[in-house]
Design a protein around this nucleic acid. Structure first.
Lengths: 170, 170
DNA sequence: CTATATTTTCAGAAATAATTGAAACTTTAA
DNA sequence: TTAAAGTTTCAATTATTTCTGAAAATATAG
């Protein structure tokens, strides 16, 4: 495969994957484009490359910056703004986990705690409390794990996982 | 909070969370409803409870069954079909990871492998290969981890994570 | 069989989300 | 200042996804 085709395929694949995870396609495509760009890019280059409007580019660049996945770069003697992305996919993953945890998981944990408190005076309420308790327990465990992963260095983490999982085979 | 309000809130919260993760709202709501139901439910009860059409209910129940999150139950002497959901949230999580891995992660890994092969004859191509290689490495690690988690029993896994993460503090 | 209950399908309608493009706004340089 | 370059906003449009409702298909009982 030639470079141009590979680049196109990567951007499309990243965009498709993202929509399946509730992230908008254009945002993921801009992110993909910036990740493989050797230099930071200005808005017009991004618009041209992805064939999107200025408003769309601007809005999704802002979202990427909100997610901590892209950054502005100001070049001296240049009036335009340039953008670049975090290229270390490990840091990208950590950033995504961190943001989703903050925006989505934390509020759900709060709701679960609230729901655990209902009086269990009917069979339905008993069953409800049981399931909510179970979800809450697993969710808190997952949240704690995510939190630990966020703090971890990659090499350290890989080694730990190696110990936990791979060594079982030996 | 009274039971009815708690139930309503749980179903809505679960539905909202799901949309943020690329899962359709109704599917998540049916799943939530079945998880907290003491008995399996027929289509009409689900329709009435969630105020949705028969077509919608049927379609999303089928999707839930495809995902391995809900099941049909045939009661003797009953012509209708009844549905129930897996209530152990740990199994639910494992099932979701398993399905997403199969449907989404595996195809992406295949594309990445294909893209790693391009000739690196320009600076752009070099940068591209670097980023793709990095993503591929992390994605394969994540995939292997997911695979290990799928095989794990909860108690065993919790203990292992405790060893890896919690004991660090001591 | 035939009638009835139940489930499935799917074309069109409704709802939701993403995108455009142009006007408003901001910044910089002369 | 003023003009030009660049950025942001947002109402209107377009695209996508989801949902409905009724018809078709299927299953069961008499």
């Amino acid at each position: 495969m030639e470079f141009a085709a590979a680049k196109e395929k990567f951007i499309q694949t990243w965009g498709t994957l993202a929509t399946q995870w509730g992230i908008n396609r254009t945002m993921a495509q801009i992110h993909a484009l910036l990740m493989i760009a050797p230099e930071s890019m200005d808005t017009d280059s991004i618009m041209a490359e992805l064939q999107i409007s200025r408003g769309n580019a601007n809005m999704n660049l802002r979202d990427l910056m909100d997610w901590g996945l892209a950054f502005k770069q100001l070049k001296t003697g240049e009036r335009r703004e340039f953008f670049y992305a975090e290229k270390d996919i490990w840091k990208v993953a950590r950033q995504v986990v961190k943001e989703r945890r903050r925006r989505e998981i934390a509020p759900v944990l709060a709701v679960l705690d609230e729901l655990k408190a209902i009086p269990t005076d009917t069979p339905e309420a008993v069953e409800f409390a049981k399931v909510i308790g179970n979800i809450s327990r697993v969710a808190n465990f997952a949240d704690a794990t995510a939190s630990a992963v966020l703090r971890a260095e990659e090499t350290w983490l890989v080694n730990q996982f190696f110990n936990v999982f791979a060594r079982q085979k030996a």
